[in-house]
Nucleic acid binder design. Structure first.
Lengths: 167, 167
DNA sequence: CTAAACTTTCAGTAATTATTGAAAGTTTGA
DNA sequence: TCAAACTTTCAATAATTACTGAAAGTTTAG
């Protein structure tokens, strides 16, 4: 497999994976492109490589920056802006974990807590609702604590932890 | 908060969460409904509660059964079919982990392996592609091994493991 | 201050994904 | 074997989401 073919396969696979996980294709593909690019890229270059419009490129780069996994770089004496991906896989994982926790898990935990704490009126329905949302709350908060730890600890904590158990 | 309000809040939140994770709203909501229902429900009842069509209900129930988290139940002497959710939260997590691994992670691992193993032609581009896809491969396979373990082990393995580290 | 070089926004449109509902299919009891 | 009771399928449509590209906005060099 040649370089170009391999790279495109990676980019396209990353796009598909993204869309299975609620991340839009363009955003995932821009990330993939920068992830394997040895140099920062301009908007022009990204548009060109992925055959997407300027607007689309710009909006998705912004999202990637909001997620904290793509950075703006400026070359000395050049007007144009260049973009580069966070290159450390651990840092990437930390950052994604952090954002997903903040945006999705935390709000769900809040609801699960509220719902599982409604007054027990003695009916079967209420009992089951409380029980089942409480057990989901426990699972989700356990997982979220793990993410919090991952976010706070030094970079290799996660891998180290897994290694012990995965053997 | 009253029962009905609380339940609807849970169902709607679960629907939103689902759509952030690539699961369609109806599927997530049917699951939520059955998750907190003390009794199995018929297609009629589900349609009625969620205000969705028969076809939609039927197709999404099928998907939930494919995922192994909803079961068909038949009441003795009744023609109609009833559906019930897997109620154990650990089992739910195992099942979801298993399916996501099989459907999404495994195929990506395959691509990452292929791409990271292309011939090194000595260019910077190729070097970077190999390096970055290899590091992603490592992360993803570590995580996937964890899922495999989770899937194989007895129900509480996952929680037990987390407990040790989360404190 | 101005104009060139660049970036961002957003209304309109395209593409994708979800949903409906009626028709086709299946099962069961008589 | 038939028809009632139920389930599944799928073409048409609706709803959602993503994308485009031109216009508006911003920055900087002269």
């Amino acid at each position: 497999m040649e370089y170009k073919e391999a790279r495109d396969k990676f980019i396209s696979t990353w796009g598909v994976l993204g869309s299975h996980w609620g991340i839009n294709k363009a955003m995932a593909q821009i990330h993939a492109l920068l992830w394997v690019s040895p140099k920062p890229m301009s908007v022009e270059q990204i548009m060109e490589e992925l055959k997407i419009s300027r607007g689309n490129t710009s909006m998705n780069i912004r999202q990637l920056m909001d997620w904290g996994i793509v950075y703006k770089e400026t070359k000395a004496g050049e007007r144009k802006e260049y973009f580069a991906s966070e290159k450390d896989v651990q840092e990437l994982a930390r950052q994604v974990a952090k954002e997903r926790s903040r945006r999705e898990i935390k709000p769900v935990l809040k609801v699960l807590k509220e719902v599982s704490n409604i007054d027990n009126d003695g009916t079967d329905e209420t009992k089951e609702l409380k029980k089942q949302t409480a057990s989901l709350y426990e699972l989700a908060s356990t997982m979220d604590s793990m993410l919090d730890k991952l976010i706070d600890q030094e970079k290799n904590w996660f891998t180290k932890m897994l290694m012990k158990f995965v053997k």
